[in-house]
Nucleic acid binder design. Structure first.
Length: 180
DNA sequence: ACCCCGATCGTA
DNA sequence: ACGATCGGGGTT
């Protein structure tokens, strides 16, 4: 069969699934925004109102509203007075959940390192202005499967939070450089 | 109106 | 180990 010359964005059906499955399968995919390309190498899942670390744990607010919306949308929030974090909304509309993109390996057009959620947004130039964008809508912000086969996947507790650390909802490529 | 603190990061 | 830096959201 002829080689594919272009790759289609991941469809909404990819994101409209259990968050842990989406998180694990996002590893190795290419994150593309305005021509910048990186391979996702570390993610974390934040799942529903029963997850104390999830922004939706205490209900819907203006900030987290996109998490309650349909899957396949970006959710970007401002944190620590100077950083932004990128998430991708998962599950069915009405169920608040998302996958945090913690690290990306530069592939093309990315100059800074992107090993950390704040650095991912710095590397791509993402901020709240890109929150609520449809990643499956045919725009310049999307995710693709280029056929890359991930090796071993490591699963650990989530980091950087004070509650819900016991849930093993962090996934990373096993050859990812571990900093903690 | 006020206050606390966070899904971080760079430096010490 | 700690400071920078500020918006969100709960409380008064």
């Amino acid at each position: 069969m002829a080689p594919r010359l272009t790759y289609q964005p991941l469809p909404r059906s990819f994101f409209a699934r259990p968050t842990l499955q989406v998180a694990r399968e996002l590893l190795g995919k290419l994150l593309i925004y305005q021509g910048k390309v990186g391979r996702i190498s570390e993610v974390e899942a934040y799942i529903g109102q029963d997850d104390p670390a999830c922004h939706a744990a205490r209900g819907q607010t203006p900030r987290n509203a996109v998490m309650f919306g349909p899957p396949g949308f970006s959710y970007i929030y401002f944190i620590y007075g100077m950083y932004h974090c990128l998430n991708m909304v998962t599950e069915a509309e009405g169920f608040p959940a998302a996958v945090l993109i913690r690290s990306v390996r530069p592939v093309q057009g990315i100059v800074r390192s992107a090993d950390g959620p704040g650095k991912v947004c710095l590397a791509y130039g993402l901020d709240r202005g890109q929150s609520g964008i449809d990643l499956c809508g045919g725009g310049e912000f999307y995710v693709v499967d280029d056929g890359y086969q991930v090796g071993a996947v490591q699963q650990t507790g989530r980091i950087g939070i004070k509650v819900g650390t016991e849930k093993p909802w962090r996934f990373l490529l096993a050859d990812q450089v571990l900093t903690d």
